[in-house]
Amino acid sequence: MKDFKFKFSRTAVILSVLAIALALGGAGWTIYRIIRFGFPSFTLGLQHVVMLIVCALLLVVFVSLLIRSFYRITDKEIVLRFGVIKSTFKIEEITSVHLFTKTNKLVVYFKNETFTVIVVKPEWNNEFIKALTSKNENIRYDVSYTEKDEDNDGPDGQ
Results as ranks from 00 to 15, higher is better:
residue 99 L to T: 06
residue 46 L to K: 04
residue 119 V to Q: 04
residue 53 I to A: 14
residue 49 V to M: 12
residue 30 T to H: 00
residue 41 S to F: 05
residue 35 I to H: 09
residue 71 Y to R: 04
residue 90 K to G: 01
residue 58 L to S: 06
residue 113 E to V: 10
residue 125 N to D: 15
residue 149 D to G: 15
residue 107 V to C: 06
residue 15 L to V: 08
residue 22 L to R: 01
residue 115 F to Y: 08
residue 42 F to C: 00
residue 146 T to A: 14
residue 71 Y to C: 08
residue 133 T to R: 09
residue 55 C to T: 01
residue 109 Y to V: 01
residue 123 E to W: 10
residue 110 F to V: 06
residue 20 I to N: 03
residue 86 K to Q: 15
residue 123 E to S: 13
residue 102 K to Q: 04
residue 144 S to L: 08
residue 51 M to F: 05
residue 125 N to K: 11
residue 35 I to Y: 06
residue 83 G to Q: 04
residue 111 K to W: 01
residue 75 D to I: 05
residue 143 V to P: 04
residue 105 K to P: 00
residue 25 G to A: 09
residue 63 V to Y: 00
residue 14 I to R: 11
residue 81 R to K: 15
residue 98 H to W: 03
residue 150 E to C: 04
residue 45 G to Q: 07
residue 84 V to A: 10
residue 89 F to H: 14
residue 13 V to K: 10
residue 16 S to F: 06
residue 28 G to V: 04
residue 29 W to F: 14
residue 116 T to K: 07
residue 102 K to M: 07
residue 82 F to S: 07
residue 75 D to M: 09
residue 56 A to M: 05
residue 21 A to S: 11
residue 30 T to S: 07
residue 9 S to L: 05
residue 150 E to M: 11
residue 47 Q to D: 08
residue 119 V to M: 09
residue 60 V to F: 11
residue 108 V to I: 15
residue 78 I to L: 11
residue 22 L to Q: 02
residue 137 E to W: 03
residue 77 E to G: 03
residue 122 P to V: 08
residue 142 D to V: 08
residue 129 I to M: 09
residue 21 A to W: 01
residue 151 D to I: 09
residue 75 D to V: 08
residue 112 N to D: 15
residue 64 S to H: 10
residue 74 T to L: 14
residue 99 L to F: 11
residue 83 G to A: 10
residue 110 F to Y: 13
residue 125 N to R: 08
residue 19 A to P: 02
residue 9 S to H: 08
residue 114 T to D: 06
residue 59 L to T: 03
residue 58 L to P: 00
residue 132 L to Q: 05
residue 101 T to A: 07
residue 26 G to R: 01
residue 113 E to A: 09
residue 113 E to D: 14
residue 63 V to F: 01
residue 115 F to T: 00
residue 136 N to T: 05
residue 93 E to K: 13
residue 31 I to A: 11
residue 63 V to L: 08
residue 33 R to K: 13
residue 126 N to D: 14
residue 16 S to C: 12
residue 37 F to E: 12
residue 94 I to R: 03
residue 92 E to G: 04
